[in-house]
Design a binder for these strands. Sequence first.
DNA 1: AGTAGCCGAATTGTCGACATTATTGAGGAT
DNA 2: ATCCTCAATAATGTCGACAATTCGGCTACT
Lengths: 229, 229
Amino acid sequence: MAVARTSIKDRVAPDAYRRLREGIISGLFHPNERLVEASVAIRLEVGRTAVRAALVRLDQEGLVTLEPNRGARVRLISDREALEIEEVRATLEAMLARRAATRVTAADLRELRQMVLEMRLRVDKNDAVGYSALNAPFHQRIWLAADHPTTSRLVGSLKSQSIRLQYQTILRPGRTERSLREHEAIFAALKSHDPDGAESAMREHLVEVLETLQWAIDGQRRAPRWLPG
Amino acid sequence: MAVARTSIKDRVAPDAYRRLREGIISGLFHPNERLVEASVAIRLEVGRTAVRAALVRLDQEGLVTLEPNRGARVRLISDREALEIEEVRATLEAMLARRAATRVTAADLRELRQMVLEMRLRVDKNDAVGYSALNAPFHQRIWLAADHPTTSRLVGSLKSQSIRLQYQTILRPGRTERSLREHEAIFAALKSHDPDGAESAMREHLVEVLETLQWAIDGQRRAPRWLPG
DNA sequence: AGTAGCCGAATTGTCGACATTATTGAGGAT
DNA sequence: ATCCTCAATAATGTCGACAATTCGGCTACT
């Protein structure tokens, strides 16, 4: 059989943090699930020490809650908190868009244009998930153009916390069409180096997202439980 | 002599993180200073394990940089980064002020009014440091009124990173007078429940702070080193 | 029947020992 | 003199063992 010589620390140990993080974000570990150090260590094929360090880090990052002597759980973001996070994100991304408008290079614009075109393509093909996959890269490209690493890091961290509800927002009928137009508006503003335009376009876009989120929350408040009879 | 029965873990261990953090913020550990686990452990009278955990957490928080196999240092925030942080803070606090304007209770206003009066008092007494000490609580009181814990936490964390330059901003001649008037303007806007007014007053205030910061940076770029002869 | 208190399993917290990795400095060859 | 090699040192990374804590269930007593 031989589990190969990948014997627990070929070079896996260093990124126990990254892998656990990925596991949480991807939903492999469910919200509120207990994370027992020993079990996780076995599952990830790393030592308990590494898991411990990862948990501390994830706690600080907000993806995990760590209570003294009582262990760790995948942090369950409340609905209210999810909305708050989205609100902050909107504020910061609007600021980034503003900055980006005055700094985009030709290369930036070329790439962004490419992305928007690809998005349009997928929407026309009714490929909602495919479209949604381009969403994050598009935004990130704007962050890059804004040249503001501090904020970028912050927004990135926020985003990872609110993934849970992200999936459901895709499902809203007619949302992709609208989302695409918003993205196109943002691109247009950036292209014409219009800070006010970019900021407000981004803000409008994220207000939309926020409303969709609210819609998703309302929806799930009913759906998940039918009492028998 | 007897260092008392505080024998290394009476109940000190749990907050090694807090103490190390405090030490960094208060300047007890200098920027760029190496933090050797063993030494810190002795100095804080805790085990190396606790120090390790604290370092990981502080790294995630941005107060310390942690390089694999090369140890930890107190993070030195570059001038550029300090400005970026202040910029983010301005954006977020402006948003908080806006929210606060629509939610301040009578009790909030009473407390804020008290603070502003006390500030006025100290400025009139030419007590710059005394005035400056009231600054943080005033802002925090507004965060509380805004009722947006996510953002409050974020802004608090940002603030701790940029302490280094904070001191020098006090020294700017005529700054306190001006700062006081800005605070009074913010209070007035909150009192009349004017979101736009509160947001812009806060933004103006923080733009002022940002400029002062820039001034301090420029100042220190010359001051700290005279070559002999 | 109800409740206080107590055992025991499971899990976290801490320590000490040791392996691993960077760093420094001395010595030697070119 | 300069560069290279290689030990000596110092610090970090990891593991295993054990102490401390929590929690669930069980008993004993009223």
